[in-house]
Amino acid sequence: MTLFHFFNCAILTFGPHAVYYSATPLSEYDTLGTSVKAALVYLGTALVKLVCLATFLNVSENDSFDPYQELLKALIGFIDVAGLYFALTQLTHRNISQNHKFQAVGLGWAFADSVLHRLAPLWVGARGLEFTWDFILQGLEANANLVLSISLAALGSLMWLRKNKPKTLIPIIYACAGIVATMPSITSYLRRGLGWHFPKVVGFELFTSLVTAFISWQLFSACQRPSS
């Protein structure tokens, strides 16, 4: 029964990634390699981030919200953007369209994030006899993270790969990308600064991920129009 629960939570956490890959044209163009590379880049980025966090952040004993430390953390969080930039622009891909490239990169990125952050707690926690909602919520969080990663990758591809985009949209794109990139800091602030509970935080994440997905989709199609 407990293995059953683990299975359920694993489906919720990793299922959407697989579904996304197989449902969208990504599977038809065989972009798995791109995703795997993006995942590896994510691993490297995470390592760099860890080193930075360990170097610049002092460990606080209490779980309180320290603005200066959080600012530093947010800055370090931008290493993610650098990693994403590398994944989008520097990696040699097979000749796939930009459309598919950012999706593949976002997918690999989100999947690596889920594996790295959620698999081990899931394996340890959800197999136990004790029932908590935490792992189901964590699965939902993974879904929100998938949407956010793909949105960020979409915005990134707009910023770095697309040359002829409407001038008026550029500041909006940058602003959106900035907001999406600082998302982890925002949720951390909500959780610790305002003392929100996990279900509420997850709800917020789901909501914002849908909003950003919608916005980035609109931006993407807006940029698509003049070129096509």
């Binding site: 029964m1 059953f4 629960h5 299975f7 489906i11 136990g128 006899l129 004790e130 029932f131 908590t132």
Partner: peptide, 13 residues
């Protein structure tokens, strides 16, 4: 342990 029943897990699935 606070446990969930099997029916709950089935429903969740």
């Amino acid at each position: 342990y606070q446990v969930a029943s099997v029916t709950f897990d089935l429903l969740l699935l």
